[in-house]
Design a protein around this nucleic acid. Structure first.
Lengths: 217, 217
DNA sequence: TTGCTTATGATACATTCGTATGAATAGTGT
DNA sequence: ACACTATTCATACGAATGTATCATAAGCAA
């Protein structure tokens, strides 16, 4: 592997920053819609109105561009999530399962207010079968999102291991599918059914999940 | 679009049938693992030990090959599912939610006994963002799998529309994620945690779903 | 201005992609 | 044996892919 260009201070300069940012925005939107393998670098630079050479220059490879798209928002997401958990812990008494779920889910869902694409991208990339994407997402979950299973385990300390992990599996299924927002329910319920608004989604999803975790064994 | 070859009786002959079948098997395995866009036709023919020209000959296009892979098992799946629903209806009294969920889910999960790939393919293709795949899956669900939401609606007649459809959304999230079997839980719970055996999966998943549907509003 | 670093642009490269073609082979009914 | 059809094979085609190259432009420090 040949060394990329020296780019120690690639972020310090201001002028051309617009180009890099537009690239990230366009890539986020397209990756969210069509997946990593479903979009070409040329489609991205065209949508971003940026030259083709900007991708090797700013990111090196398509895969690095994808990583940059994810990390740009994954880090703030973790910070936000942990702030909420912190606030919950400060309350003194043990939070309810519903409160915990809210703290864990709301930041990711709320990402849809400022930027609808990232919410979908997060949901879809988490189940993307492409090896490079899988590797990256495993890395993200083990570094940024590890707090999710850990906190849920604490809140469900009464459950046996096998039961808990299966319910955690179900939890991820619901979370990722609702984040991904594939539109499946619209094709059943009709186009008037809106699944994109985060506070509405949480209102319905959290009771479902809480009841699932509390089910009799 | 140019007309494909005449292939009215493409299935009648026996000899070369092995080639077509091997192609379907290899494609099923690879599509399940890497997604539609993550596999090339050349990888498929290589895995199937078949000549490249066999794909245009037997299927025309890659997309048609994918459709053939899905339909080969989707049709028997529907038949099996409806047989179970029939048996349930013959019982006379109204079946429990758990019994209904069992009838709806078991055939798809059981597909993993004979053929583990199709179960994963079904789960993953249902959330694949590729437009061609989405179109096909929408078609499949509206023709083969429409009975699922219909039966669930009957069993949850007490729920308001919005509540029901959100819970159906959660249901699909769980079902598809567990079918897809992406291995996420193994990375958390350790490699010893087995999610591939259908009867085990159902034992844990059905109580979770039933409790979710029954949750207080 | 001059000098230097960073960014953009047009273009080229080697691969790989899906699909098409037509000759060679194998199987079947007569 | 024959003719005929179904299948397999090697190969070719143009388009699209990710990445690299290098000349030019732009911003800033001196």
């Amino acid at each position: 592997m040949k060394k990329r260009r020296k780019q120690k201070a690639a972020v310090k300069r201001r002028p051309g920053l617009a180009s890099r940012e537009r690239l990230l925005d366009a890539a986020e939107k397209l990756f969210a819609r069509y997946g990593f393998n479903g979009v070409s670098v040329r489609q991205i630079v065209h949508a971003a109105k940026v030259n083709l050479g900007a991708v090797p220059y700013h990111f090196g490879t398509k895969e690095e561009l994808f990583k940059a798209v994810i990390y740009r928002r994954a880090l703030p997401l973790r910070v936000e999530r942990e702030a909420r958990l912190q606030r919950l812990a400060e309350g003194g008494k043990k939070p309810s399962l519903e409160e915990l779920l809210w703290a864990l889910l709301e930041p990711a869902f709320r990402a849809s207010r400022e930027n609808e694409s990232f919410r979908r991208l997060l949901g879809r990339a988490s189940t993307d079968p492409t090896p490079e994407v899988r590797k990256l997402m495993a890395e993200i979950y083990s570094t940024e999102f590890m707090v999710v299973p850990k906190e849920l385990r604490k809140a469900n300390a009464n459950l046996a291991d096998d039961v808990f992990y299966w319910r955690l599996n179900c939890f991820y299924g619901v979370m990722l599918f609702v984040l991904a927002d594939t539109g499946k329910i619209q094709t059943i319920a009709g186009k008037g059914f809106d699944t994109s608004r985060p506070e509405v989604a949480l209102k319905y999803v959290i009771p479902f999940l809480a009841a699932g975790f509390r089910a009799e064994v």
